[in-house]
Write a protein that binds this DNA or RNA. Structure first.
Lengths: 340, 340
DNA sequence: TTGAAAGCGCTAACAA
DNA sequence: TTGTTAGCGCTTTCAA
C-alpha cells in the first residue's frame, strides 16, 4: 500500500500535478472539464493530501494549539475545561483544522513547552486560556509573531485578541435577581481576586447591588473556587445574618449550601443562593441551584473561529468577543419574592 | 525574523548540514569537537528543527492522536476523560511528542474524521478509547496500518494493543469488602452491559460474591452510568431489602445514596454503598463514598508509552496492560463489621 | 487554463 | 567521522 500523490492523481486524470493541486485547493482557474475528471479520480482513490508536505510548501500546518496553563491536576475536577475543549474541537473539525492540546503541569514546563510550540512551526496559532493574571506565555507568542487568541480577559485587551464570557454582566444579573426576589441582606463569596474572572464577577455583583440600592456591608468573603473554600466562606458569613448569597462559582455554591444546611438553616427560605457557571448538573444539588450560566463551549468555538480569522488575515485589528451568560432560574433562590 | 535552518547552523558552526542533523538527533557518530561547536550555535541561536520538514523527510510527525468517540457532550460531566487526557498529555510531553485531540460528536463525524486521521499522515499513531463494543474505527486503523492502542478492552485482545483498568478485580474487591464488613444481602447496580467495563465489573462483583459465599438473588438492576439511573435502580432494589449495594460507577452511587436517603434509610447503617471509579472528590457526598479507584491518568500515561513503543517497533507482539485499582475506604460502608 | 520547474527544511543513503 | 546528494509531496511562480 503506497501513498498516492498529486503526480499519480494527475497521471490518472490526464493532467499535471499543478492542476490537481488547484482542484484540491478549490482554486477557480481550472476548466470545468479538468476539474470534473480530477475530482472523479480523487473520489475513486480516496486521495488525501499529505499534511507535512503541504505545510512545508505552504507554511501552513492546519493545526492549532489549545494551551491550558497551571497545575492541571485540579482543573479537571470541574467541567469547565472539558466544555471548552469540546467547543474548540467541534469548531476545529468544522473548519478542517486539528486541535493539539498543550497542558502545562508545572512552571518548569512552561518555558520549554512554549519554546516547542513557537519554535517547531507545529501550529498555525494558539488559543491560550488565561487562568491567572500576569502570564508570560503571551509575551513569547507575541515576540514570535505567532497568532494567538486569549480565552478570558488579557492584561492588555487593547492589543490582543480575546474571547470571554461576560462575567461582569452575569454577576450583575445575579444581584438583580436577588433584589427582585426581595432579598435585602445579600452576601458575596467572591472568586479569587488574582483572576480576571474573579475581579469581574465581584465588581459586576457589587455594581448590580448598588443599582438596586442594596449594600453588601461586611457580608463578603473570598474563596478559591473550591467547594471547601465556599463552605468556609459561608461559615464566616453566617454570623452577619445574610438572607442571600452570590457564590462566584458553582462549586463554591455547593460548599456554601452545605454550610447553610449544617448550620440548621434552610435554602432558599433562610438564605437564597445564586452562583456563577451553570456547569454542574441541575439535580446534583438540593434544592437545585440557580446559576448564571456562562456559554463555555461557545467561548471555545468562537475562540477557534477568531483564531482562524487572525491566521488568515494577520493584519486584522485586535478584537474582543464577549459572550452573554444566561440566568438559569431554579430553586435555590426560591421563585417568589419574600415579603419584606 | 527569518527561520533558521540546518544549513545556516552548519555555516555558523563550520560544518555541513548533515553533521548538524546528526547532533540534533543525538546520533553518536559525531566527533566531540564538532558536537560541541554545533551545540553552542544551537543554544545561542535558539534553533529548532522544522516539524513539517522533518515529517516529510522522515515519515514521522511526532504527533499522536487521542480519539474519543461517541456523543462527547455528556462525557465531560464526569472527570474520567479529563483525567485520561491529563495523563496522556503528561506522558506525551515527557517523550517529546504532541497530543492531538479528536472528538467524534456524531456518528457522521466518525467516518470523515477517521479518514482524515489515517489519510493525512498527520499522526504517527492513535489512542482510541473504546467506549462501546463494536467500534469500526479500529478496523479502519488496522487496514491503514496505523499503529494504535485501545484504552479499555478491545473485542479482540488477541491482536490489539490495549491498556485498561482491572475492572474485574476491582469489582471483586468491592464484593470482598462488603463481605468483610459482615453484609449478607448485597445488591448490584450494574453498569451498562453493552460496554466491556460494564461486563467486567458485573462479573467481577458476582465472582467476588460467590467466593465469599454470598448470593445476589434478584437484588440486581442495570443503570446507564448517570446519577438518575442510579437513583432509579436503587429505588427498584429497595423492596428486596438489601443491606449493601455495589454501584458500578461513582455517579450511579450518588444517585443510589439519594434514593436511600429519600426512602428514609441511612447509609451506611441500613445500606452500605461501595462504588467504582474513585473519581469524584471525597467530600462531595455525605457520608463520603467508599470506592474502587481506577488509575485513569496512569492508564492514559501507559497508553502513550505503549503507543510509542509500537510506533518505534511495528513488529512488536500485541500486548495488553491491565492496571490494578485500589480500594478507597471511606465512610459509606461503615468501617466496622455489622453484627449478623 | 495549463504545465514545467524551483524549492520549502529535513533525513538518509552513499561516498569519501 | 564527515560531506554530498537525492528526494519526501506539496505549493507557487512563471511561461506558454
Amino acid at each position: 500500500m503506497q501513498r498516492l500523490n498529486l503526480e499519480e492523481i494527475g497521471r490518472l486524470a490526464g493532467v499535471s500535478r499543478s492542476t490537481v493541486s488547484r482542484v484540491v485547493n478549490g482554486e477557480t482557474n481550472v476548466s470545468e472539464d479538468a476539474k470534473k475528471r480530477v475530482q472523479a479520480v480523487i473520489d475513486e482513490t480516496g486521495y488525501r493530501p499529505h499534511a507535512a508536505a503541504r505545510s512545508l510548501a505552504s507554511n501552513r500546518t492546519g493545526v492549532i494549539g489549545l494551551v491550558i496553563p497551571s497545575a492541571a491536576a485540579t482543573l479537571f475536577d470541574d467541567p469547565y475545561f472539558g466544555r471548552l475543549i469540546l467547543g474548540a474541537t467541534s469548531a476545529s473539525n468544522s473548519i478542517e483544522t486539528t486541535l493539539a492540546l498543550f497542558l502545562f503541569e508545572e512552571e518548569a514546563d512552561q518555558d520549554s513547552l512554549t519554546a516547542k510550540i513557537v519554535g517547531s512551526g507545529l501550529v498555525d496559532g494558539v488559543i491560550v486560556t488565561a487562568a491567572e493574571i500576569g502570564e508570560s506565555i503571551t509575551d513569547h507568542l507575541r515576540r514570535a509573531r505567532l497568532p494567538f487568541v486569549v480565552v478570558g480577559r488579557p492584561d492588555d485587551s487593547q492589543t490582543a485578541f480575546s474571547v470571554d464570557a461576560d462575567n461582569r454582566s452575569g454577576a450583575h444579573m445575579a444581584a438583580a435577581h436577588l433584589h427582585q426576589l426581595g432579598r435585602t441582606r445579600p452576601a458575596l463569596i467572591a472568586p479569587p481576586s488574582n483572576t480576571t474572572a474573579g475581579i469581574d464577577r465581584r465588581s459586576g455583583f457589587l455594581e448590580g447591588l448598588a443599582e438596586a440600592g442594596l449594600d453588601i456591608g461586611d457580608r463578603t468573603a473570598e474563596g478559591n473556587w473550591t467547594e471547601a473554600s465556599g463552605q468556609t466562606a459561608m461559615e464566616s458569613l453566617l454570623p452577619h445574618q445574610p438572607d442571600s448569597v452570590f457564590a462566584g462559582s458553582d462549586r463554591m455554591a455547593v460548599g456554601a449550601m452545605r454550610a447553610i444546611r449544617e448550620a440548621g438553616l434552610a435554602c432558599p427560605r433562610d438564605i437564597a443562593v445564586v452562583s456563577f457557571d451553570g456547569l454542574i448538573p441541575a439535580d446534583q444539588t438540593s434544592p437545585r441551584l440557580t446559576s448564571v450560566a456562562q456559554p463555555v463551549a461557545e467561548v471555545g468555538r468562537q475562540a477557534v473561529m477568531l483564531l482562524k480569522a487572525v491566521i488568515d488575515n494577520p493584519a486584522m485589528a485586535p478584537q474582543r468577543i464577549v459572550l452573554p451568560p444566561t440566568l438559569l432560574v431554579r430553586e435555590s433562590c426560591g421563585t417568589e419574592a419574600t415579603s419584606p
